[in-house]
Design a protein around this nucleic acid. Structure first.
Ligand SMILES: [Mn+2]
Ligand SMILES: [Mn+2]
Ligand SMILES: [Zn+2]
Ligand SMILES: [Zn+2]
Lengths: 149, 149
DNA sequence: TCCTTATTGAAAAAGAATTTCAATACCGAA
DNA sequence: TTCGGTATTGAAATTCTTTTTCAATAAGGA
């Protein structure tokens, strides 16, 4: 029952940017914040509908756009495209994604300082950002396939 | 006029996998191999149509699928999705993508050996792969905005 | 050259995302 | 608390992308 502190934070951010706090937005934010899986818009729609049967898919798309503009969510890259989203991690955190079920965990410890400046000077590009993800099979999915584990 | 050696290589690979070498496939492969930019299917279609005005967009999609299955191309991740493709680099090479024009160069030098095994043991995931891209502005696009450079 | 069949492009269909619009819910001002 | 302006909503229509179907064609081995 306890409300995830990020929900309050996100709703405040929306409000601070001139958006109203509506029932639809609250439901969507709650589900996005708590999800441990990368979700497609239509997945999120299905989940949110259980809390608000009148919700429209179009509101999912609109709200995702808004949260994206506020930098609160990110697309998750997978072999077949970037159709899922998750809440954005801190700058130094990246995603490890289960290719079987979409479950994610985060990790940090990458350090591209020297590599990116080396690449920048060699190519003339002004390097401003990076995207890093690890892929693998989560413990639960390993168990299902291997039997006893 | 000289033909890119990769064209021959890709066509051989297609043939080795039971595909016929057709005019459409040759044109598509030539353009993909030579492109320095990440391309959307419809971009590739427009480009290839200049060499083969009868080409159908559906053949672009089909050929991209085949090349993808052979591991010859990869999706390029960008902030708004993964709608573009490029030829795949060697395992240790990654893409630096211009967020303004899509031009790409490659770099290597990342080393996730120890990080990925650390993450694996901490999370229980079987980590098998990673995806890394750098983003920035290429020299040409820098010049256009800044004036003299 | 001939024959088999993989491949093709057009058209239709399916799927995903966006736009339009009238009804409604939010929220600040009385 | 009520009221009123307007941001937000869901349904429907539209647009954009990708896939499927199918008859005609072209690749390439015999
Ligand atoms: Mn990082
Ligand atoms: Mn690497
Ligand atoms: Zn899993
Ligand atoms: Zn991606």
């Amino acid at each position: 029952m306890s409300e995830h502190p990020l929900v309050k934070e996100w709703l405040s951010q929306l409000q601070a940017n001139g958006y109203r706090i509506t029932h639809a937005r609250r439901v969507i934010v709650e589900e996005l914040v708590k999800s441990q899986k990368a979700l497609e818009p239509v997945d999120l729609f299905t989940i949110c509908r259980k809390k608000d049967p009148a919700l429209g898919l179009v509101t999912i798309y609109r709200t995702l756009d808004q949260l994206d503009q506020l930098g609160l969510i990110q697309r998750v890259h997978q072999a077949d495209g970037c159709h899922t989203v998750m809440r954005k991690q801190n700058g130094h955190e990246h995603l490890l994604v289960c290719t079987s079920c979409g479950r994610t965990v985060t990790f940090c410890g990458d350090n591209f300082e020297s590599l990116s400046s080396k690449v920048a000077s060699e190519t003339g590009f002004a390097v401003s950002d990076h995207m890093l993800q690890f892929f693998g099979i989560c413990p639960e999915c390993q168990g299902q396939k291997d039997g006893a584990n």
